[in-house]
């Protein structure tokens, strides 16, 4: 038997909204430790790695390891049927289930709804993500990052991110012209709108804006975003999910010919 409850449906709704436009389907791997999802987008340019730890659930029971093939658009539709304050319970039989149930209970207990979703057989490879010591790790307000990716995408398809000890610079150019946004490291590091940079060595990388604008769909999950960069390897964009997990987006860089 697999059964997991969250006191508030809001967090799960935001998680689905953060991945449903980038991924069509994914395997939800359920174990004692929690729920993990790892999947590439269709073009194999980006990879999403999601983790929801069991101790972050109000109730969590996973008698046997379980893999559920989920169509994310369908799950997002079901999640949108819940109110943010509803308690949500996910239930599935653990001997190779072909469906999963979602039960939403309103906070005043007057409304209980349940949705059953068919599961799919998804034979997706799992990728090994090597541990990496990044040259630059930048923490910044997630709304700021979302704003930059959205604004600069109007000027060009590619975003050049260069990071040094002075700060982080986002640049683009196209038919319209060019645009640059420079953020200096802030002094007061522990405020929510702080920009902090841990730099081992300067980096300059180029990425396709469209993927970054998919990643920023996770902005409602966290007020901060962390960008980890080293030359010639994928960018890591990380949003924490409360104190129960995180969502990591990896984006392969554009390499000069």
């Amino acid at each position: 038997m697999f059964e997991a409850s969250l006191a508030q449906s809001a967090i799960l709704k935001k998680v689905l909204d953060a991945i449903k436009d980038l991924l069509n389907e994914a395997n939800f791997e359920c174990t004692d430790d929690g729920i993990k999802v790892q999947a590439m987008d269709n073009s194999h340019v980006s990879l999403v790695s999601l983790e929801l730890r069991s101790d972050g659930f109000e109730k969590y029971r996973c008698d046997r390891n379980l893999s559920m093939g989920v169509n994310l658009a369908s799950m997002a539709k079901i999640m949108r049927c819940s109110s943010n304050s509803d308690k949500v319970t996910i239930k599935a039989q653990d001997d190779n289930p072909d469906k999963v149930s979602f039960i939403f209970e309103s906070s005043n207990q007057e409304r209980i709804s349940d949705y059953e979703m068919k599961l799919m057989d998804i034979d997706a490879d799992q990728l090994g993500i090597p541990d990496t010591e990044y040259s630059c790790v930048v923490k910044m307000p997630s709304a700021e990052f979302a704003r930059i990716c959205k604004d600069l995408n109007q000027f060009g398809e590619s975003l050049v991110i260069s990071c040094s000890k002075e700060g982080i610079k986002f640049s683009t150019s196209g038919d319209l012209g060019s645009a640059n946004v420079k953020l200096a490291q802030t002094t007061d590091a522990d405020k929510d709108d702080a920009v902090t940079i841990e730099m081992r060595s300067p980096v300059t990388l180029t990425f396709a804006c469209r993927y970054l604008n998919h990643f920023t769909k996770a902005t409602p999950l966290s007020s901060q975003v962390q960008l980890s960069m080293s030359d010639e390897i994928p960018l890591l964009v990380e949003y924490r999910i409360g104190d129960m997990g995180c969502i990591k987006y990896y984006l392969a860089p554009k390499i000069d010919d």
């Binding site: 590439m40 990879l47 990728l127 390499i255 010919d257």
Partner: peptide, 14 residues
């Protein structure tokens, strides 16, 4: 111009 690389050239299938 710059060419988009694939994530699978950095992360190997298990």
């Amino acid at each position: 111009s710059s060419k988009q690389s694939s994530i699978t050239s950095f992360f190997k299938r298990k």
